[in-house]
Amino acid sequence: MTSQRIGKPIEILLVEDNPGDVRLTLEVFKESKMHNNLSSVGDGVEALAFLRREGKYIQSPRPDLILLDLNLPKKDGREVLAEIKEDPDLRRIPVVVLTTSQAEQDVLRSYNLHANCYISKPIDLEQFITVVRSIEDFWLAIVKLPSR
């Protein structure tokens, strides 16, 4: 299923403000068999600039998948999600909400804003690795995505 992309890395955008989490996610994706390129931004304003290729992001790739934390500085994840899903060009990109929040209202709100799925970040590393592998398997291998 990924045959169409052989040679071309899968582009992932991670929107996450905690450097420890960014590095951890990066390390886990590094262990992936799938050829991927993970970019990361630290707040909601940067995320939208990246996606719209504004300012210093003029050369940035269009991601195949967005991993979005909800609690972010400046513009938080809920606002970013709303803007992505209102944008006719960006709304096709699947957004995986990946957050430590387990609050019922965050889950509901994210789906109401058309998040493609909501995942509570596990506390344990092994479980986190399993979750990342599942995201890869499902969103990047099983699912048929629109071409860029």
């Binding site: 420890g20 951890l24 430590t100 506390i123 986190f128």
Partner: peptide
């Protein structure tokens, strides 16, 4: 406390791994 502890535990596990 959960947040910083998650970092400690995760990176310790990563070291182990």
């Amino acid at each position: 406390l959960q947040e910083p502890l998650r970092m400690v535990a995760s990176y310790m596990q990563l070291l182990q791994r």
